[in-house]
């Protein structure tokens, strides 16, 4: 049910996404993430259009870590920051990280070859129901996403919402 993609640019790194619904312990999860007890990024799935968006953010985070250009303190906070269309770090956490009342969460892990141990660690911590990662599209709040990324109706004529979002994420540092 989870989705693992190898990063072509960093062949010894893979990204795994795990989606949970009916999550009961969001506040507790957020707290452990803040304390650095969870080896993963916890993302609010309503702000995600699809799994590819997460891959773009994760790839960029690994690249910036390798080149020593990260804007935040850790790889996982950098993934959350990369999802945001602007350069405000606290706003990025507020919008793309999970909040105490959330009932769904996307967990993103960056790892070497074998992920089974990490995977079970995370599934043990989340009190919720794991669902296929592809279901993330059914949770997305398109209106909120369009507003935050400032996607115009005419832009959607020449491409999908995912295209528009990915383009902004990839180019935000030079806008």
């Amino acid at each position: 049910m989870h989705l693992t993609q190898k990063l072509e640019l960093f062949p010894d790194h893979s990204v795994t996404q795990i989606l949970f619904k009916d999550v009961k312990n969001a506040a507790e999860l957020r707290q452990s993430a803040v304390e650095g007890k969870i080896n993963g990024a916890l993302i609010n799935p309503t702000m995600l259009v699809g799994p590819f968006q997460v891959l773009v953010a994760a790839n960029k985070a690994v690249h910036l870590q390798k080149t020593g250009k990260m804007k935040t303190r850790s790889l996982y906070s950098e993934i959350i920051f990369n999802l945001s269309p602007n350069n405000n770090i606290s706003e990025a956490f507020k919008r793309f990280g999970i909040s105490d009342g959330d009932d769904s969460v996307m967990v993103v892990l960056v790892h070497n070859q074998d992920e089974s141990q990490l995977l079970s660690d995370v599934t043990n911590k989340v009190n919720g129901r794991q669902v296929p990662v592809e279901d993330v599209s059914s949770l997305s709040d398109a209106a909120k996403i369009k507003k935050l990324y400032k996607v115009t109706p005419q832009e959607e004529v020449c491409g999908t919402l995912l295209d528009a979002v990915v383009c902004r994420m990839a180019t935000k540092d030079v806008m």
Binding site: E155, C158, C167, A170
Partner: peptide, 20 residues
Amino acid sequence: VRSILRCRKAGISAPVVYFV
């Protein structure tokens, strides 16, 4: 990349930028 984004915002098709 700036021009590509500007064109796309105006509804002119140009390739999506995945990563720079």
